[in-house]
């Protein structure tokens, strides 16, 4: 038997099992130990892991090649956020509770948590999991024999306590996100979802009611974007996910974002809205800002970028 063949077999089995819900910390230790044994193990594992994820594209979009999907894949989150935020500003005010309501029927009582615009709240659940709500969000949780959470609106970061045999499922739009003990964020914008994983693995599934039952397992550093049309996964790395979670410390982080994108982001957090004219919208900016201090941001635009800034009671107009 060829040595390469044996190593590859073993590596493939690890890659395969690691995606499964039954993957335990002992399994992870075994994998780490095996990888540490030799570089031959490492290259074989890395190669399969990498190639296997490239093939994930088939799972991401099912069997239907979608031209728009290809464009989304390469585009960074801020673009999506901007797009979603523009469309979503109107949609956000719709609470979609009735649609999800029938799923509320579990054994434990349902608790409801809410933040207003600019709000930020950390909630501890009965199972010691934590949910951190971002601005303008609604979450319901039922922690019993089954652990179920509904994201009715907005965005939340979940730090899920691992409990053997008690899956933690986040329902949002027409999908559910099945958690296998982990840290991740979900943002909902009407029917669109964005799931970013910081630690562990989660499985994003379509609800059976939607007719098909496709799902995809995503890992640390991955961001999945789900719309009614399909589901796409980008892998920008853990640092990228950390950046997306800057809101947890009340910050907004822009890396070469357009001013238009940045304004949409600020508008998620503040009642006083930034209105940017078309020419100024295309300007690129970068940096870290206090999400709730839109006045300071406007000042910076005036002083550092030389833009005209006019302030009214409920809006700030920016023009070139």
């Amino acid at each position: 038997m060829s040595r390469t063949h044996d190593i590859e077999e073993r590596a493939a089995l690890f890659v395969h099992r690691r995606e499964d819900a039954s993957w335990s910390t002992t399994d992870q230790e075994n994998l780490d130990a095996w990888l540490a044994e030799s570089d031959a193990h490492k290259v074989a594992y890395w190669r399969l892991e990498h190639g296997w994820r490239e093939a994930d594209r088939i799972g991401s979009v099912g069997a239907i090649p979608m031209p728009a999907a290809a464009a989304w894949h390469r585009s960074a989150w801020p673009k999506f956020v901007a797009l979603a935020a523009c469309v979503g500003l109107f949609v956000l005010t719709l609470t979609l509770v009735p649609i999800d309501f029938w799923r509320g029927a579990t054994d434990a009582p349902v608790a409801r948590f809410e933040t207003g615009i600019g709000g930020h709240k950390v909630v501890a659940l009965a199972d010691e999991s934590r949910v951190e709500l971002n601005t303008d969000s609604i979450v319901r949780a039922s922690i019993g024999k089954e652990r179920a959470v509904w994201l009715d609106r907005g965005e939340a970061f979940f730090d899920v306590a691992h409990v053997e045999g008690r899956p933690f499922v986040v329902h949002a739009a027409n999908r559910s996100i099945r958690v296998l003990g982990t840290q991740f964020a979900v943002r909902r914008n009407g029917a669109n979802l964005t799931v970013a994983v910081l630690k562990g693995t989660v499985r994003v599934e379509e609800d059976p009611s939607s007719g098909s039952h496709r799902s995809v397992t995503i890992m640390p550093g991955d961001v999945a974007f789900a719309s009614e049309a399909g589901l796409l996964v980008t892998s920008g790395g853990v640092q990228n996910v950390q950046d997306l979670l800057a809101w947890r410390s009340g910050r907004l982080l822009f890396d070469n974002a357009t001013l238009g994108d940045a304004a949409s982001q600020f508008n998620r957090y503040n009642r006083k809205k930034l209105i940017v004219d078309k020419i100024a919208s295309d300007m690129h900016i970068g940096g870290t800002f206090d999400a709730r201090n839109v006045d300071a941001f406007a000042r910076l635009l005036r002083e550092a970028y030389g833009l005209k800034v006019r302030e009214d009671r409920d809006k700030i107009s920016v023009s070139s």
């Binding site: 060829s2 063949h5 493939a12 395969h16 190669r47 990498h50 296997w52 093939a55």
Partner: peptide
Amino acid sequence: EKQMTQGMRALVDFMLGGSGRISRPSIRS
């Protein structure tokens, strides 16, 4: 698991520019 590992190896080979055929071990290297 057997089918998966075989399929994974062939598919990865194909994704990385190979023929994507199932490779069986040679009798002896």
